[in-house]
């Protein structure tokens, strides 16, 4: 146990803001362990007791903080996975490229792909003849007008 005089000296240093971390620990330890102390010193006990209580509260908060960080990371990982999933599935269904496959031969020539697309549109398109032959349903004719 440190001498009372030494503790008083540490207290003076503490209130002057000159104590080191180890000296502050000594003060805390003293006020936590000492059973008999001068009355003028016992007034400081709640102060260091409060600090002890506060430090014991920090631990669970840190624990919560760690869990919160872990949850954030999990959410971030899930979001990235979701984005990759959507992008991958979208790529699988739609593809992101322009191409034409003729007789099993794939070409990425955009001009050729556009020409073949025009041909297909012409194949499914309507002519004035189709309209006059009543091959087009009435509501579709209305859409044309």
């Amino acid at each position: 146990m440190k001498s009372i005089e030494y503790i008083k000296h540490l207290l003076d240093k503490y209130f002057e803001g000159n104590t080191s971390h180890s000296e502050e620990l000594e003060l805390r330890r003293f006020f936590a362990e000492a059973k008999d102390m001068p009355a003028e010193m016992s007034v400081y006990k709640p102060l260091f007791g409060y600090i002890d209580k506060e430090s014991s509260m920090i631990k669970p908060m840190r624990h919560h903080h760690k869990l919160y960080i872990r949850y954030i990371w999990t959410a971030a990982a899930a979001s990235i996975l979701l984005l990759f999933g959507i992008a991958g599935y979208s790529g699988y269904i739609h593809g992101n490229s322009n191409y034409v496959i003729i007789n099993g031969e794939k070409s990425t020539n955009v001009q050729l792909a556009k020409e073949e697309a025009q041909k297909a549109l012409t194949d499914v398109g309507f002519s004035q003849k189709d309209i006059s032959k009543e091959l087009i349903p009435q509501d579709m004719k209305e859409d044309m007008q």
Partner: peptide, 11 residues
């Protein structure tokens, strides 16, 4: 991808 088919995709 068959012979006789033409498939186009444009994005």
């Amino acid at each position: 991808k068959r012979h006789g088919s033409t498939m186009v995709q444009l994005s």
